[in-house]
Write a protein that binds this DNA or RNA. Sequence first.
DNA 1: GGCCAGGTTCGCT
DNA 2: AGCGAACATGGC
Length: 319
Amino acid sequence: MSDALPETPITIVPVPPYDFDLTAAYATYFRGRYGTDSFENGVFRRLLDVDGVLFLSGVTSTGSTSSPRLSLILKGNSLNSFVAEKAVAQIERILGTGQDVNPFYEMATHFPVLTRLTNVLNGLHVPQTGSVFEALILAVLGQQISAQVAFKLRNALIETYGPRLTIDGVTYRAFPSPDLISSTSLEALRVIGLSARKAEYVLDVSRRITSGEIDLEALRNRSDEEIIATLTDIRGVGDWTAQWLLIRAFGRSDGFPASDLALLRMMGILHGKSNPVSPKEAIEFSKRWSPFRSYVTTYLFAAARSGHPELIAPADSPD
DNA sequence: GGCCAGGTTCGCT
DNA sequence: AGCGAACATGGC
């Protein structure tokens, strides 16, 4: 028997409730296509880099939110059961299938503002990035500038440095590894639109990872506090970036990017104000949502981006 | 044309 | 500790 499994569908059973459409849409920032990922016509695709070998994954839903089931098809040149297993694990993490949102929903029943979000966005899990490095670079590129510009910079970086694989006439890209970025120059990074400062951050962290000085993946076993301390020692990483990584790379439940302008504005609206709350107020207020602030943050952004801005409104009764 | 966007660092008090 | 400037680009 052969251990090759080309194009054999693999079944994944997420922890319910799980809304595949919503979660996959979030993974592509509700844009359909975002760098390495696409979600079009019900198919989520991503080019995976498994130990340097590239595979195209295609995921579709074959179940429902309350009884979820996903079908995964892998395509690549050297597919065998060993790498397939790793690829499945990656997809499960990226699509957050193993997360259990029920404890969060239980807490949400105590807060009208949250109940509204969890009702409409029922089954949204928090998508994860392919690696901690990927989340870090995407976050640095997104610092301060508008989502529009961040989109452009991120795509340009992936286009320029991401390894590619062509399947059925379509070229897909994976996220560039630290060593692929390490060998570039500040000038080359500036050409694709990065500021001198962002270029320094990106190059610096890539080289420190390549040299072995930093091991971001090793942080997965550490506490939230240790992760934040280690990350914020890296040039270019402040509290905002570290908190976003807790949410999107480490899958922690209580990340909260308190200096995020969009988040502060949304929380201002929840308070019935037209101006943003201060980071201090936001942290104070958010304590009642602990330890599920990653979910609150994700659901607020999902509401704003997915065509449900009305969900972000003051509660009828105070929280 | 100016100002601000899903921040961070650096160089001042 | 706390504050202001600089940073790149695009949209209003």
